[in-house]
Design a protein around this nucleic acid. Structure first.
Lengths: 339, 339
DNA sequence: GTAACACCGGAAATCGATTTCCTGATTTTC
DNA sequence: GAAAATCAGGAAATCGATTTCCGGTGTTAC
C-alpha cells in the first residue's frame, strides 16, 4: 500500500482556490454569502486535494465529538453483536461513531477505559455486558449513560433490558396453547438473574392457568448442551413424565432435544420444547428445529441508541428499568400437530 | 443518573491553582521547571475539579489521535471477536482506542465509514471480514492499513491471514499419524477460497504420503451441521469406506459426527474426524469432542496490531501476504487409541 | 453626484492543551 | 559586590476549522 502525503487542511484548499481559509469553510458548508463561482472553485479545489475536514478541530469548537463509547464486559460475544448492530443502526444516521472498549469483566480495566472515553469527550456512553445481573453504576458523569442489556444497581441510571419474565411467559403460554400440561423448566445456574427471572415467568404463567411448577420439574445447571442432555436424562428417569419443557437457552434446548430423540421420545409428538435466545446456529441445527424466545436485541440496541441520542441533544434521559418485550419464534420443536 | 457540569479545562485548573494555563500543562505532564510546591498545588486543583485533558486538543497539536479504525464486513461475527481481542491486547498498552465500523458487506457503506475514519484522523486502519477471499484494496491512504484475516487484491497492501493450506495439512498429517489411509474432505462452498485452500492442504499432504484424494471423497456444500450430516450419509452410502475425514469447519465436523454415531459407526474407532476453527461451542458439545485446527485468530490480531503500531511510529509497514500458521488441538474425535 | 444598500470575502477570534520564548527573580561564582 | 548562571512561571503561538465582525466593491435611489 502506498502512503499518501499528510491530509490537506483548509489552508491548502484556500491557497489552491485563491481564497482565505474562512471562505473555504463557508463554501464547503453552505454558509455565508459567496458567489456561486467562488463556491464552485473552492469545491473543485477541495475535491482535487481530497480534502476532508478534521473532525477534531470541528469537535473542539462545537463542544461535541459525534462519538459515543461502548463499554462492554463481554468480549464482544454473541449477545453484544446484535446489540451493537442495533446501536449502529440508530447512530449511523447521525454519523456518530462508536469507540468500543472491552473491559473483559475487569473493574480496573473498566475504569481505565472510562477515563479514556471521557478524555476523548465522547457525547455519551453505552454500558453492556454478558450477564443480566445488576452491576455497579458508573456514577454521575458529564455525559449521558445508558445501560443496555445490563442493569445498573442505581435506580437513577437508565437501564434497558429485555423482559426475561415475559419471554419465559410467552414460551409457557405457547406450551399450554398446544395442549401441554406437565411443564418442566431446564436452565442455567441459579446464581444468574436470567435463570431466576425466566423461572419466575414460567411459574407465574403456569399458576395463572391453574397449574404449577413443582421443584422436581425445575432443573438448574449450566448454559450448555451437555447439561441439557443430562437434564433430559434426569427427566426421563423420573416417575412422572413431562410433556413440555421450557429451556433457559437454545443450547440447553438442543441438548434436551438430542437426548430425547436418542431415548426414542418423540419431539414434538410426546414432548414440546421451547428454547431461549433464537441463536441461529443452535436453532437451525437442532433436530427438530427449535421454537424459541427472541429477545430482540437489535431492537433493544436501537432503542438504547435513540434514548442516548435524545439525551445528547439536550433531552431528558430518564431513569429506571425499561423492559423490552420478547417475541416467540415458532418452529417444529413445540408443535405436535405440525407447524 | 445525575449529570455533572461540563468538563473542566486547563484554565479552570489554572484559576483554582492561581497559575497560568501553560503552567498547568507543565505541572501535569512533568515538563518545564516548576517548584515542587507549585506542581503539587496544580495537581491538587486538577484532582479537585476532576480535570482530564481533552484528547481532541492534544490530538490537534500532536498530529495523531491515538485512535485506529476497524473496518469489518462481518457484523462483528464469531471470527471478528477473537481477532478484535488480539488487536486490543496490543493497542491497549499504548492506550490507543478503536473505532469500530461495520459495513455489513455493503461497499457504499464501507466508503462512507472510510471517509468518516479519515475525517477523524485515525492513526491507522484494520480491514477485516468474514470471508477469506481477496477483496478490493482501499487504495493509497494517508494512514497505514493492515488487512487482517482478509486479503487485499493489491499485493502492495499488507494482508495477514492464517494459513488454510498448512492448517488442513496439520489435520491430514494427524490422521495419517493415527494410521488412517482413506481420507475424505467435507467442506463448504467451492466458491469460497477457504474451501479450496483447505482442500489443497489436504490433498498435498496425502500426495506427499503417497496417497491421494479422489474426487469421490471430496464433498463440498455449505458451512452447516446439516450439510455435515448429509455428507456423512453420502459417504456411508458409497462402496468404499473412508477411515478419516478432514472437515472444513467444526460445524460440518459435528454434523458428520452426529450422522456417523447415529448410523452406528464408531468415532474415532472406525473413523477419525478433524474439524476446523476450534469453535468452543461446537467442539465441546460434539460427541465425541472434536480434534480441530486452531487458526490462532487472537495471535493474528496481536500481530496485525503490532505491525500497524510500528508503521504508525514511522516504521516500514511492509506488503504482501503474511501467512500465520495454525495449530492442531487434539480431542477424542480423531484418536482411536484414546487421548 | 452622492448617499444608502446589498453583496463578497478577508482578518481575526475561538475552542483546549501544549510548547516555545522570554522576563524577572534568585542564587552562584570569582 | 558585580557578573554570570540558574530557576520559576507567564505570554503568546500553535494545531485546524468555524464564525463573527468588518471593510471594500458594485449597484441602486434620489
Amino acid at each position: 500500500m502506498s502512503r499518501l502525503a499528510a491530509a490537506p487542511t483548509v489552508h491548502d484548499v484556500a491557497q489552491l482556490a485563491g481564497v482565505s481559509a474562512g471562505t473555504v469553510s463557508k463554501a464547503l458548508n453552505g454558509r455565508g454569502q459567496l458567489r456561486e463561482e467562488t463556491r464552485k472553485r473552492v469545491q473543485v479545489a477541495a475535491e482535487q486535494l481530497g480534502f476532508r475536514a478534521n473532525r477534531l478541530a470541528k469537535g473542539l469548537i462545537e463542544g461535541r465529538t459525534y462519538t459515543v463509547g461502548v463499554l462492554t464486559s463481554d468480549s464482544f460475544g454473541r449477545f453484544t453483536m446484535p446489540l451493537m448492530n442495533g446501536i449502529e443502526d440508530s447512530l449511523g444516521a447521525g454519523s456518530v461513531s462508536t469507540l468500543l472498549c472491552d473491559s473483559r469483566g475487569d473493574p480496573l480495566r473498566e475504569r481505565h477505559y472510562l477515563a479514556e472515553l471521557l478524555g476523548r469527550r465522547v457525547d455519551g456512553i453505552f454500558v453492556t455486558g454478558r450477564r443480566a445481573d445488576p452491576r455497579p453504576s458508573l456514577g454521575p458523569l458529564p455525559v449521558p449513560v445508558v445501560y443496555a442489556m445490563s442493569r445498573s444497581e442505581d435506580p437513577l441510571d437508565l437501564s434497558i433490558v429485555y423482559d426475561d419474565v415475559q419471554g419465559a411467559g410467552l414460551a409457557t403460554s405457547h406450551l399450554l396453547a398446544v395442549g401441554r400440561k406437565r411443564i418442566a423448566y431446564v436452565s442455567g445456574p441459579a446464581r444468574h438473574l436470567s435463570t431466576r427471572l425466566r423461572q419466575e415467568g414460567t411459574e407465574r404463567t403456569l399458576l395463572a392457568a391453574g397449574l404449577s411448577l413443582p421443584p422436581a420439574r425445575v432443573l438448574l445447571g449450566e448454559w450448555s448442551e451437555s447439561w441439557g442432555r443430562s437434564a433430559a436424562h434426569l427427566l426421563l428417569g423420573s416417575a412422572e413424565r413431562v410433556d413440555g419443557i421450557v429451556c433457559g437457552s437454545d443450547q440447553i434446548a438442543r441438548g434436551v432435544a438430542d437426548e430425547l430423540r436418542e431415548a426414542g421420545v418423540d419431539v414434538p409428538g410426546e414432548v414440546s420444547l421451547v428454547g431461549f435466545d433464537n441463536w441461529d446456529v443452535m436453532v437451525e441445527a437442532s433436530r427438530p428445529q427449535l421454537t424459541t424466545v427472541e429477545p430482540n436485541l437489535k431492537k433493544l440496541g436501537q432503542l438504547a441508541a435513540n434514548r442516548l441520542l435524545h439525551a445528547i441533544d439536550g433531552g431528558e434521559l430518564g431513569s429506571g428499568l425499561v423492559l423490552l418485550p420478547c417475541d416467540l419464534v415458532l418452529r417444529q420443536s413445540s408443535m405436535p400437530s405440525g407447524p
